[in-house]
Write a protein that binds this DNA or RNA. Structure first.
Lengths: 221, 221, 221, 221
DNA sequence: AATGAATGAGCGTTCATTCAT
DNA sequence: TATGAATGAACGCTCATTCAT
């Protein structure tokens, strides 16, 4: 497993121990504030205060807010990627169970307070900032890569395109539930039901889908 | 059907014609700015300037930014609700076709620039503001009500709960595609494929799902 | 004579009486601070405080510091231009006396605290900002225009180019004395001597200079 | 003749070779930045970065910005003084030619980018800081000393005061041209004309001026 | 002799809001 | 209804400076 470091926009070198601690404190507090109050209220001053430092010192580590935000998102996204890799490593032998494990994990995660609050913010930012869109896509791509593999195990007759499309469709569908059954969302009570419904159903779909150019009625309309 | 104007937080009485026109102009320009640059850059000054008025006069119509935002979201959401109702009214007799029409419309809509930009912003706001969450849920509830009806036509053996769960799952799944195949999003080229895949597949699911407490392997895990 | 107004970069409309007063107070206090402490210490906050207003209100009148500075320089320069025009209007009939009056006025003015402090700041700004350089040149051009006229009266045999060159040389020479005999400068005690020396001498030069392409030994070396 | 280095405010002892090199690098980079962007943008951080060092280390050499500025101006001024002395040493035997050489050199120099940008900054600083005013005066005094000598050679009948006044007047006049015919200034195309006009004319003045208390019409007015 | 780390004040500017006109 | 005029807090950021390492 990789080391923790994700910071690349930081100019404060953090070579001393105190510096490293400060750098970490910045990311942690920024992360907390981001989750808590969203991007709009994530100001340099608030981060500095939360991390117990002066604004001047914060901008020694991050000269601009954009730099800090970039590192912060990288940091959080890296956390998710690491979880995904762990997930894969721990996968059982049975393909169906792998499928259930991966989607189940994501579904459960989406209901946590952190994820429910974080991802919509990320989606908004990605809509306005190309670099953020890229990082986000990189993360989702890693996630889908796992899905593509598992789908291939379940139904080896599917070609690459079909596997990709299925993975994309499945992951997009699950992500969509964040807004409805996520933490504090109105239908969170149905989360368990929907999770099983969705997973079993997509599992069946993967199995049932014919090979390349299958007769599933797909034609662009 | 509702009237065109939805303003309820506005304190300016807008009893004169010019006042009504101004009120409308505010909402239209605010809407445009919201779509264009997002909630974070939607400031009273910018709205006032866009609507060709002074900030002072804007705050005659909307004493606080929150009031304006509330009316604005109501206004935009009402627009979507109206579209949904039109959709229902124009539905064909064939249940399958109704299903395809409703979901097809939503899927196509999600790829428009406006919707791709607007909904994630709405989701973020709903995460932080209960009133907004309520209005959003009201809108989605109307949308799902249509779905529940159509699902009932397709498969009358399903009980209320099952219909609701299916409608929720289907709508959530489709919404999730906004982030991946929406306007400017990295996989927009697959939108057509995914739309058909998703719709046909959900249609089959609705048909195949057993009656109440069906043996679909669903148990909370 | 023109009205007092020079402001063109101001966005505060100053239509009310209080607004006009405020606009005037800003320019006056800014002018005072500029003379007193120089461009480097002329900050929006200091101006606002000196004019007894909030920074927010100052930026209602001048959205940016550059706008304020532009108006300020225009305002001060206009003051000098007005003085120059008065000077011309009051000129006596005798050409020699006109010459002495104009140069004597400038020389005396350069020794005032205001002018000694203001002009070097202006020269520095003109070195870095084209717009300021333009405004400055416009002012000096008006000044030289007067000189050119008087020189023509004194020695009608001179062609345009020669008159212009003489005016330029004379005015530049006098300006240079600001740094040496201006207010608080080390040789201010010699100001009187030098003024007479310089003026009489330039007067003789104007008289002695031959017509166009005179045999004054001028060849580019 | 002075040594090359003039640093007197510096507290870093610079006893090691590397220290001396660093001290030199600071002055050179500071000089470059001062010429390039002016006093207002000459910050400790920018100098440190340009000299490839940390702000902390810079303040080991110069504890305050004022100290650095003092040394810097001394350094630059010393450069000019050295040029002036070279000038004198290379002077021809003919007095008239010496006069032309000295003034010609200064006039040409004033049109260089460096000098056009540097001197007005110096004048401004001298207006606000006595120590700087002193150093500047010291430099100009040396320059005028040369002029006084040459003037004495040309016209030995002049007494000290008259020679001094003439030197002051001549040097001030030439300095004034910086703003009008210097580098990038609007009348730089006339520089050659004006130089000859001015020099020949002042040469004649020196020759023509009567002895002490001459009847040149000079009376304080 | 040098860097890393930190402070605290100040910068220009934007903002929601208020209120007299 | 509408604008003009004003506030005061907050924003991101830069600065000279200090001090431990």
């Amino acid at each position: 497993m990789q080391t923790q470091r994700a910071s690349m926009r930081r100019t404060g070198t953090a070579t001393y121990v105190t510096g490293q601690e400060t750098a970490q404190r910045i990311l942690d507090e920024a992360r907390r504030l981001f989750m808590e109050d969203g991007h709009g209220k994530l100001t340099m001053r608030r981060i500095a205060k939360a991390a117990g430092m002066s604004p001047g010192n914060l901008s020694y580590y991050y000269p601009t807010r954009a730099d800090l935000l970039a590192d912060l998102l990288q940091y959080v996204i890296d956390g998710y990627i690491r979880q995904l890799q762990t997930l894969r490593d721990e996968a059982s032998d049975d393909a169906d169970e792998q499928f259930r494990a991966v989607l189940g994990f994501v579904f459960n995660d989406l209901a946590t307070r952190e994820t429910t609050l974080f991802f919509p913010e990320l989606w908004v930012l990605a809509n306005r900032d190309d670099w953020i869109a890229q990082q986000m896509e990189k993360m989702y791509a890693q996630y889908r890569a796992i899905l593509v593999d598992v789908i291939g195990l379940i139904n080896p007759t599917l070609d690459e395109t079909r596997r990709s499309d299925l993975a994309l469709m499945i992951s997009a569908s699950i992500e969509g539930h964040t807004v409805f059954v996520g933490h504090g969302r109105p239908h969170r009570a149905r989360a368990g039901q929907l999770r099983n419904l969705l997973i079993e159903h997509f599992l069946r779909l993967v199995k049932d889908t014919g090979g390349p150019r299958s007769a599933d009625g797909t034609k662009d309309r």
